Structures are given as structure tokens and as C-alpha cells.
Simulated scan of single mutants.
Amino acid sequence: MYKKSTQNYYRLYSRSKKECKNCPDFSACATDLGTVRINASAYYPSFYRNGKKVGTSDYLRVMRLRKIWAEGTFAVLKREHKLNKIQKRGLQKATEECLLSATALNLKRLVKTV
């Protein structure tokens, strides 16, 4: 069963107290009449799968490419487009400011190559 929390969706499991009695995390779970509710993030399966990839050759290759492309771009945006501090208020306007800065950077790169 998926429930809406303050930020994300989470999964809600129900088990009997007998099954959870010896669990070390039992005190952190919510208990009702004879059942235990366990809250789990809906993103945990993806998080777990990605965690298993850490240290593999594919992971290291992707991280090296990320350093080259993404981190360099963020550094340029922060240095030359004043994105170290967002000037606008609100999530939508801040997103707009970031997209406009990224568009400006891409246009500069396009002009430079042509």
C-alpha cells in the first residue's frame, strides 16, 4: 500500500508482532493492536540496486564522465552565471533561472564551435 507523506510516497507494511519480536529495529516501528507497521521508501529498491554497482568498472567509467561533463558545467554556471546563489524566489522561478543559465551556456558553446 502506498501512502503520501510530506515529500515522497512510502510503502506501508503490516506484520504480526510475533514475526517482529526479535528484530533489533522493533522499537522504531509503529505498533497497533497485534500488528506492526513498517514504513519504507518507495525508492529503496532503486537505491539498493545502485548501491551494489559502486566500485564496478561501469560505475567508475560513468563517474569519470560525470566529472568531465556535469561537474565542469556546474562550475562554469556558478562562476560565470552567478548560480552560486539563486536570485529568484520560489521553486518554479529558481528552476527557470537555472534553465535559462544552462541555455545561455549551451548557446555560448554552440557559437564557439560554429
Rank of each mutant, 00 (worst) to 15 (best):
E19G: 02
A30V: 13
D25Q: 15
E19S: 10
Y44N: 04
K52T: 06
N50K: 09
P45M: 07
A42N: 03
K17Q: 12
A28M: 04
S46A: 07
K21N: 10
G34F: 03
A28S: 11
L12V: 15
R15H: 09
N8R: 14
Y44M: 10
A42C: 10
L12S: 10
R11K: 11
D32F: 11
T35I: 12
S41Q: 04
Y43N: 10
Y48C: 01
N22E: 14
E19D: 13
D25L: 15
S46E: 06
K52E: 12
C23K: 06
E19C: 07
D25A: 14
Y10T: 05
N39A: 08
Y48F: 08
S14G: 05
K17V: 14
N8T: 13
A30W: 11
R11M: 10
D25G: 06
C29W: 14
T35F: 11
K18Y: 06
K53M: 15
N39E: 04
K52P: 01
P24H: 05
G51K: 01
E19N: 07
Y43W: 04
A42Y: 13
T31K: 15
I38N: 02
S46M: 03
K53N: 11
S14C: 07
G34I: 02
Y44R: 07
L33Y: 06
F26R: 02
S27Y: 01
Y10V: 04
F26S: 05
S27R: 01
Y13C: 08
Y10S: 06
S16C: 15
S46V: 09
C20G: 08
F47G: 01
A40G: 03
E19H: 09
V36D: 03
R49Y: 12
N50P: 04
V54S: 02
N39K: 12
N8K: 13
C23A: 07
C29V: 02
P24A: 01
S27K: 07
L33I: 08
K18D: 09
R11D: 00
R37V: 02
C23M: 01
P45S: 08
V36G: 04
A40D: 12
R49E: 14
K53E: 14
K21W: 05
K17T: 12
Y48Q: 05
C29I: 01
P24Q: 05
Y13D: 07
C20R: 08
K52G: 08
G34T: 00
K52H: 12
A30F: 15
L12W: 08
Y13F: 15
S16Y: 04
S16D: 10
K53Y: 05
C23N: 12
S14H: 13
F47P: 00
D32H: 02
Y10G: 09
Y43V: 06
K21A: 12
